[in-house]
Design a protein around this nucleic acid. Sequence first.
RNA 1: GUGGCCGUAGCUCAGUUGGCAGAGCAUCGGAUUGUGGCUCCGAAGGUCGCGGGUUCGAAUCCCGUCGGUCACCCCA
Length: 392
Amino acid sequence: MARGLFRRYGYTEVRTPIFEEAELFVRSTGETSDIVRKEMFFFRDKGGRELALRPEGTAGVVRAYVEHGMYKLAQPVKMWYFGPMFRHERQQKGRYRQHTQIGAEVLGSDDPLVDVEVIALLYAIHRSAGVREEVIHLNNLGDAETRRRYIPELRAFLERHRSELDPDSVARIGTNPLRTFDSKDPNTQAVLREAPLIGEYLSEEAAAYLSAVREGLEALGIPHTLDERLVRGLDYYTSTVFEAKSPLLGAQDTVGAGGRYNRLVEELGGPDVPGIGFGTGVERILLAARGWEPETSLDAFFVTLSPEARLPALRLAEALRAEGFACELDYAGRSPKGQFRQADRLGASYAVVLGEEELSGGFCTVRDMRSGEERRVPVSEGPKELLRALAR
RNA sequence: GUGGCCGUAGCUCAGUUGGCAGAGCAUCGGAUUGUGGCUCCGAAGGUCGCGGGUUCGAAUCCCGUCGGUCACCCCA
């Protein structure tokens, strides 16, 4: 499903290792991030190398980009991936120690329309998987100049209200004041309603970039909202950030999220190349997509009344399956009555009965499970007659 | 990493002051020698999460441990 979408958007699949040097994730995600501090599955191999199960997908893709010199290709390079991610943490609804992410990364362009495309792709994946009522929350964390002006203001504000904040938020004043916006503490939230917002401090370039992205989303009719309190827990984000939220999810309401990381390639040893990407959780998509049941329909259930009938029944079932019909047989040694019950339970359209009479007469009895009507269908020449009977 | 709740039959759960391990649903069979749904009758199914301890006796009390779940932190 997602594979087809990626093809249409021009992304090629990459497969990166499930575990890598721990240092890669520390450098990319940030030493102070919780992912690194407490959520990595960490281990040493026999040579003493420090490895970690990947907690997210971007770092591996960027490493591959640098390592394989993909910056020498025509830019941008558009890639996608699919696979398991690991976080060592207590689980709850919508959060697991191992989960599956679908992700995309675009490296080598800082065109705002790339941002729009990436968000549109995320939205399309969710739509086609059945996620409804989804809204894209959008923000811009600004460039270096923006932050140079904004962070001191925010920090000063938080200091003035230090006594009203929860302990976690107080601790962040020094390390990462932006993250105080993530607090769910009601008192902290109340204080932050008065806090200076980054929008007023955006540099001219950053502000223009943000409105270009918004115009693009507008043009595509993607429901979105500017959320100036949206910050992200990974340190590598710059400029555009976004989260796709669904009200159907509970405490973990983000289905997929991502943003720009214009400094990351260089930090991982490559040239100064901008990038953007998203990751989206398959398990959360399934939670947010309301039950679209596969509706298994069964065309025929074979009822065998004697052991001698089992092989002929199996042969007929195989022939019908080859023609595209869904067929089942009894493998539980049920009584005839039990086999009809099972046929009913499975929602079979027809029961095909094979017993002594049928075997010696060269026919089978086809029962319409809805009406109860029964007909004898000759099978001595093979399954052709039976096929016709079922296709009716 | 922090806190709450929960681990008993396939599923949902009862289980009294410690005294033979239960119900409903589901499964299988019978009532109907080869015919489903409804009804009735019956059968099968359990290391009571695991390991210690207390006791004549533990699903029940104590300690430990593992797992699940929800929330916090954080994140997909």
